[in-house]
Amino acid sequence: MSLPPLKSLPVFEAVARLNSFSHAAAELRITQSAVSHHIKALEDHLGESLFVRSGRKLELTLEGQQYLDTITSSLNQIARATDLIKGASETRLRLTVYSSFAVYWLIPRMPELKRRFPNLELTLEMSYAEPELSDRVADCFITIDKEKRGFHFDLLYKERLFPVCSTAYLEEIKHTLHVHDDQELHAHLAASPQSLANFPLLTSFSMYEKYTEEWRRWFASMGTNLPPNAQFHRFSHLMLAYEGAKHGLGVALINDYMLQSNSDDGLVRLPCSHYATEDHFYFAYKHSRRHEPAIAQLKQWIQQESSSLRV
């Protein structure tokens, strides 16, 4: 077995994580010269450069990045195995989650999580795009990506998008379309979904990395094309479109989990059909860590809380 200088591995991980020799030295309570010695010893053993300097900027080489991914996971496993033998149970978890999911669904429910598992310390890392599934990033993830070797994926729900607007704007829609109640509006939109394009539509780039795409798909699900006369307010992220709809800018398509905890904020669902996207949301974690108490607790709680989304 050809092992590297083992004492150098935590030093390498610290330098890569902190992107600094001096910060790593301070964290590890050793001299910066000692840090440099450890990195040189590791590079000599591997026969590869792990870092490259560009002025004051320190970056991992491709080989360094690949090595870091493996080393971080291995060091974490060693630490967890040691705690297990010592009788210590890890209660701290890092969860990477989409920003809208965190703000509108998870955070309002976290007091209940704290009551249920008072010793669980959860750190939220917000993601605006698909997170990199790696122990270096977080311990577990909410993601629509399920193509990662060595990870386990538990289905939370299948995404749907609903047209929503403010309560005041809903009355304006009824008045303009000459309907008197939700039942008449439902019949009108079912027969003529294009009439919704008479009102400003709110679109977000982040959902499909393309403006208006979510509305094109909604109209297609209703059996018609996106009307050429449609006018749009454009937002970079779904959260901004949500807020725009809440403040009466028009009609937005929002995710079902955003409706779950916001029934009293003045935002209402229009009485018309939803659009079922092809995205499935999963709770993801390393298969090798499936028996860890903290991950098992969080998994159990999230699955139970998300059960209403699967109806």
Rank of each mutant, 00 (worst) to 15 (best):
L95Q: 01
E48Q: 10
W105N: 06
W105F: 12
K146C: 13
R109P: 01
I85W: 14
D139W: 02
L28V: 10
S192F: 11
V35E: 03
Y275P: 09
I254P: 03
R216M: 09
L58D: 06
H45W: 15
N19H: 15
R217Q: 07
E43K: 12
W105K: 01
D279W: 10
E112Q: 14
N255H: 08
R29D: 09
I71E: 05
E63S: 11
K174Y: 12
E130N: 02
T143L: 01
F219A: 02
L270D: 00
L120T: 00
T167Q: 11
T224N: 07
R289T: 10
Y104A: 15
F51N: 08
E209S: 09
E125M: 08
G250F: 05
H23F: 06
N229S: 12
W218E: 09
P10W: 02
L201C: 07
D264Y: 03
V35P: 12
L238I: 09
I85T: 02
T176S: 06
S166P: 09
E147V: 07
H180D: 12
E59H: 14
L62Q: 12
E48D: 07
L170Y: 07
H291Q: 14
P10H: 07
D154W: 00
E63G: 01
T82I: 08
L155I: 04
F199A: 04
T176I: 13
E214G: 06
P163T: 04
C165L: 06
G266P: 15
L177G: 00
L196W: 03
M222I: 00
Q65E: 15
P271D: 11
S261W: 00
A187K: 13
Y104Q: 11
N19G: 14
T91I: 04
F12C: 10
L253C: 05
L6A: 10
D135C: 02
L240Y: 04
T91K: 07
S74G: 08
Y211V: 13
E63C: 08
Q231P: 10
V103I: 14
G244F: 00
S134H: 01
E171Y: 04
H280Q: 11
R234N: 09
D182S: 06
D256A: 09
F199D: 01
V97F: 03
Y67D: 00
K148Q: 14
G87A: 03
L253P: 00
E209A: 11
P111K: 03
L122S: 04
R53H: 11
A296R: 12
R290Q: 07
R92T: 15
A81C: 05
F101M: 08
M110Q: 14
N198F: 04
G64R: 02
A190K: 01
E130G: 11
W301K: 02
Y157T: 08
S22K: 03
T203L: 00
S134T: 13
K86P: 03
S308C: 12
T72R: 11
K210R: 14
S273T: 07
L170P: 04
R269I: 02
A25D: 11
F117C: 08
M126L: 15
